[in-house]
Nucleic acid binder design. Structure first.
Lengths: 174, 174
DNA sequence: TGAGATCAGTCAACAAGGCTGACATAATTC
DNA sequence: GAATTATGTCAGCCTTGTTGACTGATCTCA
């Protein structure tokens, strides 16, 4: 547990040592992920709790908004949970009238999921909270920092699914 | 579909527009947090599952390693869970001989928690996995990106607890 | 010294949201 | 026509969070 000698955060950004990363620097990165993610999910969690929903509902709503007309299989692929687990969430959202499902045109077995107006409203409320936090962080840190944030998080994603994930994240239309 | 520094996602890194952040850019940041955190926790989760532990055990072990001799109240403060919830985890870890607790010297009501050799071993295994992932990401992204990553995540943390969290993250000794 | 606060531990009950396994139905594909 | 696929559902289990109530040991302060 040796100290990175001088004060503050200076020890971490050393453009002169591209490959030398101390355990201490890495540990700081790990803890930052933990604390930042905890607060990152905090705002929506509070709104969701009022309605008896949780983070799982938020994730479903987010990606339905993102790709309207997505199938159940598509959601399962993105969320990486079991269909039983997703089904419980989807049933609640359907019963509550937040999501709609239409029969697929090409493959009539498929359900094409979309948000109802009520679902859109909740999604807007949730994403506004989360965007506000990210916007404040991005503004405070500055554009170069944002580019770095993006680069590191991208590299943090499992290599074997990275391209697929990044094309989902970056794609503007389904 | 490219990495930020190159030409691809031009819309995102615009050093010329410090304050203009589109909803699309913010949404990408939100999704990156989701996907990166999911994979970030994946490696340790697998090791923990073999032993019948979960992420909660990992968090406790991590912060005991980080601040040996920490009290229960100290852990509660960091982890922000209820004492009943923490107690369940601590009891398992104690029963399994991974953590030790000594009576406080100054205040004998307190328990000073440390890792046993077995606990140290598990901690080392878990943190090695997580450090490897962070190290690879940091190396691939480069030192400037790492600085940006840190800056953004720091700003992502709730403002009212930010200083406390950051001094915990950056502090070298308890 | 005695009252009250604090630290730790525990019991009980509950909920969210993961998981596995088994099975059903409809529609598509071969 | 048989096999496969997409979806839905039942039942049961686990982890990990919650609230509320209560105990015992110890410390603090009037």
């Amino acid at each position: 547990m040796q100290a990175p000698p001088a004060g503050g955060t200076k020890s971490v950004s050393r453009p002169d040592q591209l490959l030398f990363l101390t355990d201490e620097q890495l540990r700081q990165g790990i803890e930052l992920m933990f604390f930042a993610y905890r607060d990152f999910t905090g705002d929506p969690d509070a709104v969701l709790a009022e309605r008896g929903y949780g983070r799982a509902h938020h994730r479903a709503i987010h990606f339905i908004k993102r790709r309207p007309g997505i199938t159940i299989a598509g959601l399962l692929d993105i969320l990486q949970v079991t269909k039983q687990s997703l089904n419980r969430v989807m049933r609640q959202l359907t019963d509550d009238g937040l999501v709609l499902s239409a029969q697929g045109q090409i493959d009539r077995r498929q359900r094409l999921i979309t948000l109802s107006p009520a679902g859109e409203a909740l999604e807007a409320e949730l994403s506004a909270l989360q965007r506000d936090r990210v916007r404040r962080a991005f503004r405070a840190a500055g554009p170069d920092a944002v580019a770095g944030f993006r680069a590191v998080l991208e590299q943090m994603i499992n290599e074997d699914g990275r391209d697929a994930v990044m094309s989902l994240v970056e794609r503007d239309k389904p």
